[in-house]
């Protein structure tokens, strides 16, 4: 398969070649993903679509270095992460990547501010508190800094998650069904905010979604069916 065409003015930030993921089960080898070739440019917004169980989440898991592939290679910003160990990939994630999850994934014991500060503190940023406060103000939660996730609504929690995702000014943002757990109105406002922040930060966005309208807001769509790119 030919690598997907790229924008001429920017450099490739994610390159995946001949990517495959298989698992061994009692019934034999199960192919979850096979022969994926991708080139994603810096600043691009990509929607990954496909039915449940098609392999979308596995794909972004591999691309973000959260999981290891069975074969093939992935390079992020020119670095081959398939050659790295878990701690190497963790360093790359901290430096390059931001995440937004369907179920928010905030640490329950921490306040909104502390949740946003977390990735900054992990990289030893001395201005963590100031950056986190500014971002929470940007997502409209200036009055909620000391609240814990339990004291926030679903929409507010996802705003905290957005602030956290952009805190380290990542080059790439992976968003996995970011509106899946929200009502349509709240979901729409979150998506607006996501795209706003994305354009402000010139981030490469990889968005996994079921929603065709949402996919249409991205510059490009990659469809996965039964573990294959179509």
């Amino acid at each position: 398969m030919t690598p997907t065409q790229i924008k001429s003015h920017s450099h490739p930030i994610i390159v995946a070649e001949n990517l495959a993921k298989t698992v061994l089960t009692a019934e034999g080898t199960l192919h979850i993903l096979s022969s994926i070739d991708l080139i994603i440019n810096s600043g691009e917004s990509i929607a990954i679509i496909g039915e449940s169980g098609s392999g979308k989440s596995t794909l972004i898991g591999l691309l973000a270095g959260l999981d290891t592939s069975t074969s093939g290679s992935i390079s992020l910003n020119g670095l081959d992460i398939t050659q790295m160990n878990e701690d190497g990939r963790a360093a790359i994630r901290n430096e390059l990547i931001g995440f937004v999850f369907q179920s928010f994934q905030l640490l329950q014991g921490l306040t909104a501010l502390e949740n946003v500060m977390l990735p900054l503190e992990l990289r030893g940023d001395k201005k963590a508190k100031a950056i986190a406060s500014r971002l929470l103000e940007r997502v409209g939660l200036a009055h909620r800094l000391s609240h814990t996730p339990k004291q926030l609504s679903g929409g507010e929690q996802q705003r905290v998650a957005l602030a956290r995702a952009f805190a380290t000014q990542p080059k790439i943002l992976f968003a996995d069904e970011p509106t899946g757990n929200l009502d349509s109105k709240t979901g729409a406002s979150i998506i607006d905010l996501l795209f706003e922040l994305n354009s402000e930060n010139q981030t490469t966005l990889i968005l996994v979604t079921h929603d065709a309208h949402l996919a249409a807001r991205c510059e490009r769509t990659i469809k996965i069916e039964a573990g294959q790119q179509v």
Binding site: E86, A90, A91, R93, E95, F99, Q105, L122, R123, R164
Partner: peptide, 19 residues
Amino acid sequence: DNRIYEGTLMRTFGANRKF
């Protein structure tokens, strides 16, 4: 369960095993 969850999330954000 909570420890696994938090540990995994921290590693997602770039915390290494040493940390």
